[in-house]
Design a protein around this nucleic acid. Structure first.
Length: 523
RNA sequence: GGCGCUAUCGUCUAGGGGUUAGGACGGAAGAUUCUCAAUCUUCAAACCCGGGUUCGAUUCCCGGUAGCGCUACCA
C-alpha cells in the first residue's frame, strides 16, 4: 500500500472571535500535518451569510499566525484547489448537487418548511422517531423536475441507504449508526443555498483532504457525510473527532466563561508558546505522561493523533498560567520589554484620563507613549524585576502599584499594615530612618544609591537595636505602602531613578516617601 | 424521547488482567528570604455503580447512571 500524502484542513466560520476550542482543533491539525510532512489547508466556511463577517476572517488569520500556526493553502495564499472561501464556491456546490440528482442519489423536496417543522415537533412530543424521508421521495423524479421547471422552488434531499453506516475514527475507533437514526437530510435549501453538511464533503473531497480532524460535535453528522462520499463514489477520509473543551462548570466552553478567545489571551499577556503548549496538552499526553513543557518543534516530533483522549477536558486556567509564568521566565528580556510596554502605555493613559478626564492625543498614545529613551530603559528594568512573578503580563501595572501608586495615607490605614505599624519598635525605627534620610547628602541630592540605603538601614539597626523583620517591615510599609514586594536592593534604584524622570505619572523618591509617610502617620 | 460519544486524584492526564495506580496544575506543611513571589523538600488527594468473564478486575464484556453532542431548509 502506498502512503498517500497527508492533507488536512482547518475550516472555521468567521462568525466571531476564535476561541480555544477551535484553536486546539487548528493546532492538532497543524501538528499532524507538520509531523507527516503533509499539507495544511485553511478554508473559510462562510455559508452562513447572516453571521459571517469579513473582519472576523482577518482577525482569524491574525490569531492563527500569532499562535504560531501557518498554512500552505488558504484564501490569502491561494493553492491548487481554489477558491478557499465557501461563499465563492457556490457554483461548484450546485454543479455537484445536479450530479447527485442525475444519479438518483438525491431528490427534490417540495414540502413546505413549516409543515415539516410541525411534523417534527409532533413526532418529538409523541416520543416517536421523526420521519426518515419525506413524501417527495416516493414521487417520480421526472414529475418533481417538471414542478421545479414550472417555477416552484424545491430543496434537495439526500437519500440515506437502508443499511448501517460505519466509519473509522482515529480517536474513537469504529463508529456505527443504524440507518433509522439518520433521516434524508436537506443538502440544498429551497433558497438555493447549500447546507454545511453537504458543502463540507464537496470541499473536503475536491481539496483531496485525507484526514478530517475536527470537534466531536460533528460526530453525529458524520454518517450523513459518509453517505455523501459514497453517493459521489469518493474515497471516505479518515476521521478524528476531538473531544469538547469544557468550562469549570462542565458546560461547553463559551463566552459565558469569560475571556476564552485567542485575542483575549493575547491581550491579557499570555505568550503564544504558552497557549500553544497548553492547548497541546488538552486531550493529548506523551507516552509516559510525565512531561509538560514542550517546544513547538518537540510537539511536532512527539505528537500522536492516536494518543488523543476521547473524553471531554475542562479548561484549566491555573495550569495555563503556570505555563505562561514558565515561558515568561524563559523569554528574552528585549522581547518581554516590548510586550510589557503595551501595559505600561495603558497604565499611563488610564492615569492621564483619571487625572484630567481627557483622553490623550493620539500621537501621545503611540507605543512608548512619547517617553524618553531613558524612561523606556527604566521601564525595562521594572519589567525584568516584576515579570517573573506575574501570571499574565497585564498584571504588571498592578504589581508596579508600589512604584506608581504610592499612597501614604492609605498605607497607614490599610488593615494589612496594622500589625506592622502597631509593633512596639515601628515608631522608633521610622523616626530614626526618616532623620537619617533627611540628613543624608545623597538623598538630598535626589540620588540615593542602594549601597548608601543599605548603610543607612544598618545605622538605624545599631542605633535602635532593632533588627530583622521588625526593622525591615516598617521601612517597607513606609516606602511602598505594602508589606510585600521585591527586595530593596533592586527596588531602591528604581524608585530613585524614577523620581528624576519625566513621566506621565510622577514617581516619588525614597526621601519623599518617608517624609510623606511620617506626615501621614503622625497626622 | 431516539441515536451517538465519554467516564482514573478538585483539574489535565500516564498506565493497564496481579502496580506502593505514576506525573503535572492547584491545595497543605516545612526550608529559605525583611516580606511576597520564585526555588527546594514533604504530604493529602482518584480507578462512577451493578453484573459477567477470570484463580484474580480499575483494566475485557454487558447493563445502569451521569455528562456532553446530534436529532434543523444552523455551522
Amino acid at each position: 500500500m502506498t502512503q498517500e500524502k497527508v492533507r488536512v484542513r482547518f475550516a472555521p466560520s468567521p462568525t466571531g472571535q476564535v476561541h480555544v476550542g477551535n484553536a486546539r482543533t487548528a493546532l492538532f491539525n497543524w501538528l499532524f500535518a507538520r509531523q507527516k510532512g503533509g499539507t495544511y489547508v485553511l478554508r473559510i466556511e462562510d455559508t452562513d451569510v447572516e453571521r459571517s463577517e469579513a473582519r472576523y476572517e482577518t482577525q482569524l488569520l491574525d490569531d492563527m499566525k500569532w499562535l504560531g500556526i501557518d498554512w500552505d493553502e488558504g484564501p490569502d495564499v491561494g493553492g491548487p484547489f481554489p477558491p478557499y472561501r465557501q461563499s465563492e464556491r457556490l457554483d461548484i456546490y450546485h454543479q455537484y448537487a445536479g450530479k447527485l440528482l442525475e444519479k438518483g442519489k438525491a431528490y427534490l423536496c417540495f414540502c413546505p418548511a413549516d409543515v415539516l417543522e410541525q411534523e417534527r415537533e409532533k413526532a418529538l412530543a409523541e416520543h416517536r422517531p421523526p420521519m426518515r424521508s419525506c413524501p417527495c421521495a416516493e414521487v417520480d423524479p421526472a414529475e418533481l423536475q417538471k414542478r421545479r421547471a414550472a417555477g416552484e422552488s424545491a430543496a434537495i434531499r439526500l437519500k440515506i441507504p437502508d443499511h448501517p453506516i460505519r466509519f473509522h475514527d482515529i480517536v474513537r475507533g469504529w463508529v456505527e449508526f443504524p440507518p433509522e437514526a439518520v433521516a434524508d437530510p436537506i443538502i440544498v435549501r429551497s433558497t438555493g443555498m447549500p447546507v454545511y453538511n453537504y458543502v463540507v464533503v464537496v470541499d473536503d473531497a475536491l481539496m483531496e483532504i485525507t484526514h478530517v480532524i475536527r470537534g466531536d460535535d460533528h460526530l453525529s453528522n458524520t454518517p450523513k457525510q459518509v453517505v455523501l462520499y459514497e453517493a459521489f463514489g469518493w474515497k471516505v477520509p479518515e476521521f478524528a473527532h476531538l473531544s469538547t473543551i469544557l468550562g469549570a462548570d462542565r458546560q461547553r466552553l463559551s463566552k459565558r466563561h469569560g475571556a476564552v478567545s485567542i485575542a483575549n489571551f493575547r491581550d491579557s499577556g499570555v505568550l503564544p508558546e504558552a497557549l500553544f503548549n497548553y492547548l497541546a496538552l488538552l486531550g493529548w499526553a506523551p507516552s509516559g505522561g510525565d512531561r509538560e513543557i514542550f517546544s513547538k518543534e518537540e510537539l511536532v516530533k512527539e505528537f500522536d493523533l492516536g494518543r488523543v483522549t476521547p473524553s471531554a477536558a475542562v479548561f484549566d486556567v491555573d495550569k495555563l498560567n503556570w505555563l505562561n509564568r514558565h515561558y515568561i521566565k524563559e523569554a528574552a528580556p528585549e522581547r518581554l520589554a516590548a510586550l510589557a510596554q503595551n501595559y505600561w502605555d495603558r497604565m499611563f493613559r488610564d492615569s492621564i484620563v483619571a487625572q484630567t478626564g481627557l483622553t490623550p492625543a493620539a500621537e501621545v498614545s503611540k507605543p512608548g507613549y512619547g517617553l524618553s529613551d531613558e524612561a523606556l530603559e527604566w521601564l525595562k528594568k521594572i519589567t525584568a524585576l516584576l515579570a517573573p512573578s506575574v501570571d499574565r503580563l497585564e498584571q504588571l501595572p498592578e504589581r508596579a502599584s508600589l512604584i506608581f501608586a504610592y499612597d501614604p495615607v492609605a498605607a497607614t490605614m490599610a488593615p494589612d499594615n496594622a500589625e506592622v505599624l502597631s509593633a512596639p519598635n515601628t515608631a522608633r525605627v521610622l523616626d530614626a530612618f526618616a532623620a537619617k534620610i533627611a540628613a543624608d547628602a545623597e538623598a538630598q541630592a535626589q540620588k540615593l544609591s542602594p549601597e548608601r540605603f543599605k548603610a543607612i538601614v544598618n545605622e538605624v539597626k545599631t542605633e535602635t537595636g532593632v533588627k530583622g523583620k521588625d526593622l525591615f517591615h516598617p521601612i517597607r510599609v513606609a516606602l511602598t505602602g505594602s508589606h510585600s514586594g521585591p527586595e530593596f536592593d533592586k527596588l531602591v534604584p528604581i524608585l530613585e531613578e524614577g523620581s528624576r524622570l519625566k513621566l506621565p505619572k510622577r514617581v516619588l523618591s525614597v526621601r519623599e516617601r518617608i517624609e510623606a509617610f511620617q506626615a501621614a502617620r503622625t497626622a
